[in-house]
Structures are given as C-alpha cells and as structure tokens.
C-alpha cells in the first residue's frame, strides 16, 4: 500500500514573545491508506498538535508533510479549507456539535459547502446517521442525546462527505466504557468495511489495541514502534 500520509523531519514550534516552545521535534512517519493508527503519549507531548497539522488546521514550522501527495502546508487558506472539507473528517473529544441544530442539521453542515441540492444533502445526512445507528434520533438536539449518541452524531458528521482520512482526538475520552466500546466498534467498522484511514489519539491502552498500529509520542519525539 502506498503512503497516504508522509512526514519528514516535521517541526512545530509555538512562540510566545521571546520564548519558543518546540512541540514537535523532527517527526518522520508514513501512514498507508487503510491503516488504523492509535497515537498515544503523555499529556502535552504534542498529540493534538500533530493531528492539527495533519488536518491542515495549523501549519508546521519546518519539515515535509504531504497527504495523498499534496503538500498541504503550502496551500493558501481558502484552498486548504476546501481540501479539509473534501478529504478529512474530524472527531473531537467533546463532540463539538452545534447545540442549536438537530442531529440531522449537524450532520448536514459539511454538505452545505458542496453543490448538492437540499434533498440530496438530507438523504446523505440520513444515510450517515443510519450508519452510526442514530436514524431514529435525527430531529434531536445535542442536549437531548447521551454522550455516546452525541459522539455518533459527531462521527456521522465526519464521514458524511466520505473523506479518506479520519482524525480523532480522544474520541472516547469523555465516555464510559460501554459507550466508548461502541464508538471504537464503529471506528473499526469504518476502517475495515469502508476503508477509512484513521488516526486516533487516545490515552486508553484498551482503545489503542483496536488499532492496527500504535504510535507513542513523548516530548515531541516518536518512540520506537512495537508492531
């Protein structure tokens, strides 16, 4: 399989006044299409920072970063936004749904950026909710749903545009074991049956075992891999 994600000597520094903080210290990494990668590491080790760079939410200080052969760090803001909409799905620890919108409207959000007509947008939103097992909760607002259900809506929103890459930042971090397991089942299904490449940040070794590959980040440096 060819590498979907390709990193060489990736560095990310944050500057605050005179101080500069090197959060990612020369990462090199390849992730193939279809992999399910768990990213572990202590708090503050730079996991979220890496995810942000991969998703084009932030720009690296130096180094190489290509996704699907595209050097996303060099794209102008507007093109990068468009690229995100087409190729990446984000799943957050706190779900980050819009509280004023129904589950269906939340899932429809990314489709507003497409040229699809309203009926087709609706159809796709429903299909995505169907996939995560929430077809009967379409009209509910986030605050009428349990944490696990909200995260499913979050997943449906992430996959509704059918992206190649799913980036999940502690998707089960705020859930109890049972709901967490259900979410992991779902991610595994998306990886195995729908061929999504997934990069998941987690603190939970049990969750990491679901992945096909585990990475450990410490102080901005990747540890030797145990396959």
């Amino acid at each position: 399989m060819k590498a979907l994600i390709h990193l060489r000597d990736l560095v990310k520094e944050y500057h605050r006044g005179e101080e500069s903080l090197r959060v990612l210290d020369g990462l090199s990494l390849d992730i193939a299409e279809g992999e399910f990668v768990a990213l572990m590491g202590p708090s503050g080790s730079g996991k979220s920072t890496l995810l942000n760079l991969l998703g084009g939410l932030d720009r690296a200080t130096s180094g190489e970063l290509t996704i699907g052969g595209l050097a996303i760090g060099e794209l102008p803001d507007a093109v990068l936004a468009r690229w995100r909409a087409d190729h990446v799905g984000f799943i957050f620890q706190m779900y980050n749904l819009l509280p004023v919108l129904s589950a269906e409207r939340n899932v429809e959000l990314p489709l507003l950026l497409t040229d699809l007509p309203a009926a087709e947008r609706r159809r796709r939103a429903r299909a995505a909710l169907d996939l995560v097992g929430l077809e009967h909760r379409m009209t509910h607002r986030p605050n009428e749903l349990s944490g696990g259900q909200q995260q499913r809506v979050g997943i449906a929103r992430a996959i509704v545009t059918d992206p190649t890459l799913l980036l999940c930042d502690e998707p089960t971090g705020d859930l109890d074991r049972k709901s967490g397991d259900e979410i992991l089942d779902l991610l595994q299904e998306l990886n195995r049956e729908h061929g999504k490449t997934i990069l998941m940040v987690t603190h939970d070794p049990r969750a990491a075992e679901r992945a096909t590959r585990q990475l450990h980040l410490d102080k901005g440096v990747l540890q030797a891999e145990v396959r």
């Binding site: 998703g55 939410l57 507007a78 936004a81 468009r82 995100r84 984000f90 957050f92 980050n96 990314p110």
Partner: peptide
C-alpha cells in the same frame, strides 16, 4: 468561538 472553530475545521472558509 469554539463553534466557529468547528465550522472552520469542517472546511468553512474565512469569507464564508
């Protein structure tokens, strides 16, 4: 603020 961040994450451009 965070919702706007989410929208941008989803690909909503600055002009949008």
């Amino acid at each position: 603020t965070s919702e706007i961040g989410v929208l941008k994450t989803l690909g909503f451009g600055n002009t949008t």
